[in-house]
Amino acid sequence: MKWMHQDVQNYTKAKEYIDSAIMPLIPFSFENDDELSKLAYQHEVMQIFMTQIEKQLKGRVFLLPVYNYLKQNKLEDEYERLETVVNHVNEQPFKHIFLFTFDKKWRKYNSEIDAELIWLPAPQQGDLNQVETQQLVQSQVSEIEDLIKEQWGE
């Protein structure tokens, strides 16, 4: 399910089945020109990951809106804000919350946060219109999918 009018209506009718929330954590910043293309590319890949996973597991997964933040912000403050969001989602209730990020700074909060924080290695920049890149992305999507299914099985 997505954060969209039609999907939300389906969600309210089938809450007991949709027990997992996924949310990407995506930084942005205009501070450094060299970094712009890197961050934008990561944003693009993450969006593909999320939409593909939502498509495959639509009936059990709710894709939340992106958690955006400024890359240069102090992570302690950012963590507080994220915690509020996670707690709110937990109360809904969702049984599983998966947070996905390419930003390794988050890893130190792995044990503190009341969610499954999944850090993915940042992808090499490539042309997303090329078949090889698409295959690479697709294989990663299936691995993320397996990871989610494993959590369900526990």
């Binding site: 389906n10 597991l57 639509k58």
Partner: peptide, 8 residues
């Protein structure tokens, strides 16, 4: 598409 809630 699963006829339950739309998974694959």
């Amino acid at each position: 598409i699963c006829t339950h809630l739309g998974c694959v």
